[in-house]
Simulated assay, not measured.
Amino acid sequence: MIWEEVKNAYPNQWVIIEAIEAYTEGDKRIIAQITVVNNFQDDNNKALLQYLQLHRKHRERELYVVHTSRPELDIIEQKWIGVRADI
């Protein structure tokens, strides 16, 4: 699916999506193909809890929680710089 199809199929809902085809352009993540993992009417808390459970089990999957009222997927890729402490 593409984002327009997701918005039409799940209007004004929270959805957990998985990027099937994606690439980075500058600092934006461009998602060309999406699959909907689950949808939630107005309950963003349930969506976030399920996202966390899925993310812990399947860290290799590219999952996002988004609301379908967004005109487009505007996902900014963040570079994480960690601090290591020698113990």
Rank of each mutant, 00 (worst) to 15 (best):
V6H: 10
V6M: 11
K7W: 04
N8Y: 11
N8K: 15
N8V: 08
A9W: 03
Y10Q: 12
Y10L: 12
P11M: 08
N12D: 15
N12H: 15
Q13W: 07
W14R: 11
W14L: 12
V15T: 12
V15D: 09
V15S: 08
I16P: 07
I16H: 09
I16Q: 06
I17H: 08
I17G: 03
I17E: 09
I17F: 04
I17S: 08
E18W: 02
E18I: 06
A19F: 06
A19R: 05
A19C: 05
A19Q: 03
A19Y: 02
I20V: 13
I20W: 01
I20A: 06
E21D: 08
E21F: 00
A22Q: 06
A22C: 04
Y23Q: 01
Y23T: 01
Y23F: 03
Y23V: 00
E25N: 02
D27C: 00
K28C: 00
R29F: 02
R29M: 06
R29T: 09
I31V: 12
I31D: 02
A32H: 05
A32L: 04
Q33E: 07
Q33N: 07
Q33Y: 02
I34N: 07
I34Y: 06
I34L: 15
I34F: 05
N38M: 12
N38F: 10
N39Q: 15
N39G: 10
N39P: 02
F40K: 14
F40S: 13
Q41Y: 15
D42M: 13
D42T: 15
D42A: 14
D42C: 10
D42I: 14
N45Q: 12
N45W: 08
N45T: 11
N45H: 10
K46H: 07
A47E: 13
A47S: 15
L49A: 12
Q50F: 11
Q50G: 00
L52H: 11
Q53G: 08
Q53H: 11
Q53F: 07
L54E: 10
R56W: 02
R56D: 11
R56Q: 14
K57F: 06
K57V: 06
H58S: 12
H58D: 12
R61I: 03
E62S: 08
E62Y: 07
L63H: 03
Y64M: 10
Y64A: 09
Y64P: 01
V65S: 02
V65E: 03
V66I: 11
V66Y: 05
V66F: 01
H67N: 15
H67Y: 08
S69A: 14
S69P: 03
S69L: 13
S69Y: 13
R70L: 14
R70E: 14
R70S: 12
P71F: 05
D74F: 04
D74M: 03
D74W: 02
I75D: 04
E77M: 02
Q78D: 02
Q78N: 03
Q78L: 05
K79A: 01
I81F: 04
I81P: 00
I81E: 06
G82A: 07
G82L: 08
V83K: 09
V83D: 03
V83P: 00
R84E: 05
A85G: 00
A85I: 05
D86G: 00
D86Q: 00
D86A: 01
